[in-house]
């Protein structure tokens, strides 16, 4: 019996449960990007997305987006049932065209930020966030 209890603890230790990205949601995410950019080209870089590598809990994941010279930033969680997370529109008195918030991620997935620049061009950044399953307390 002791063997079983210990083995439950030992075997369970350190295993990250990685949820696969549902393909349907991914397609929906790409559609949302299409409608945001109107099919225009998207450059890599020009927008920074900061997110933890491993989220301690998928319910509250802190992220930050930053795109100097952007008028708008769209944030998508490509693996969520509905990928839309938020759209940040910067006004005349916005200082840095950046914002931080806390989001919900349904599982390990790619988070994407698309920035619309003041000159009409688009930029993209993404980050993979591992959403883990906790131990006993869940």
């Amino acid at each position: 019996m002791e063997l079983t209890r210990r083995s439950v603890l030992q075997l369970g230790a350190g295993i990250l449960v990685v949820a696969s990205v549902p393909l349907k949601a991914f397609a929906a995410g790409e559609d949302l990007i299409e409608s945001f950019t109107g099919g225009a080209d998207i450059a890599e870089g020009g927008v920074t997305l900061t997110a933890p590598e491993i989220a301690e809990n998928g319910n509250t994941v802190p992220i930050e987006v930053d795109a100097p010279g952007a008028s708008e930033i769209l944030v998508l969680a490509m693996g969520n049932p509905t990928p839309n997370v938020a759209t940040f529109k910067f006004g005349a008195l916005s200082a840095s065209h950046s914002a931080s918030t806390r989001i919900r991620l349904a599982g390990t997935q790619e988070v994407v930020a698309i920035a619309k620049m003041q000159d009409g061009s688009f930029a993209r950044a993404s980050a993979t966030v591992k959403v883990t399953i906790g131990g006993c307390g869940g």
Binding site: R5, L9, G14, I15, I133, G135
Partner: peptide, 15 residues
């Protein structure tokens, strides 16, 4: 004690 005294610092799944 089994968890919190004997095994603190260990990973229980990803916790």
């Amino acid at each position: 004690a089994n968890c919190h005294e004997d095994n603190y610092g260990s990973m229980i799944r990803a916790d």
